Computed example of a mutant assay.
Amino acid sequence: MAKKRQILVIGHNTNGCTPEHEKVAYDVGVEIAKSDSVLITGGLGGVMTAAAHGAKDAGGLTVGIIPQADASEANEYCDIVIPTGMGLTRDFLNALTADGVIIVGGGSGTLSETCAAYMNKKPMVAIRNQNGPIEKYIDGFIDHRKNVKIIGVDDAKEAVKTILELITA
């Protein structure tokens, strides 16, 4: 049996997450489940909860890698919880666990995870017009190293289709 693809969804936590972010993240979760991939998130609120909720509603498997040491801190849609006790350092674990990353808005934590994925040359897709710090890097690179281009897409279906193409390329 082949290993399942693992797609990390990152973005706004509860603070700063809008209904639009939640809708997009939910739809991304649904599409990930429909692709028979595993959804990985940081396991907390906002985009993470919405994506996991979408994946669960579509019959998918969800994993939450949380910064706390107590598994009960994860959102209710996580099938598997990995309580790291690592605080924000867990951003690197999230990035390394992923075969590819989908970005929905976000703040400094999302930027940290994006940089960790970038340094490890993980394929990345960002949904346009979500008002996160990644916007200025869409369809470009974070720095002079040009490790991996952050591909811009317009919706959830295109995000999952594109990340799967990048993973298997």
Rank of each mutant, 00 (worst) to 15 (best):
T97K: 10
I102C: 02
D154E: 14
N94D: 12
D139L: 09
I138A: 11
K161Y: 08
D155T: 07
R145K: 14
D99F: 05
D27E: 15
I10W: 06
E73I: 11
E135N: 11
A51F: 03
S37M: 00
H12G: 15
L39V: 01
F141I: 00
R145C: 12
A126Y: 03
Y118Q: 05
C115E: 11
I7L: 12
T97G: 06
G42S: 04
H12M: 15
M48Q: 08
K136Q: 15
P83Y: 04
L111Y: 07
V104D: 05
K4V: 07
A25F: 03
I32G: 05
M119T: 13
V47H: 02
G11K: 10
R145Y: 14
C78E: 02
C17Y: 02
I127K: 09
T162W: 07
S37F: 05
G109R: 11
E20L: 15
I151C: 09
I40W: 00
T41G: 03
P133V: 02
Y26Q: 09
R145H: 10
G29F: 02
P83S: 09
L61R: 07
M1Q: 14
F141S: 04
A116K: 03
D79H: 07
V104L: 03
I32M: 13
D154N: 14
E76T: 11
G87R: 09
G43M: 04
P67H: 09
G140R: 00
I151E: 13
V101N: 03
Q130C: 07
L8H: 04
L166T: 03
G105L: 04
P67L: 10
A50D: 00
K157D: 08
C17Q: 04
G45C: 08
R145S: 13
K56E: 10
L164E: 14
G54V: 04
K121P: 01
I134E: 08
E22N: 13
G107Y: 01
V30H: 00
T110R: 11
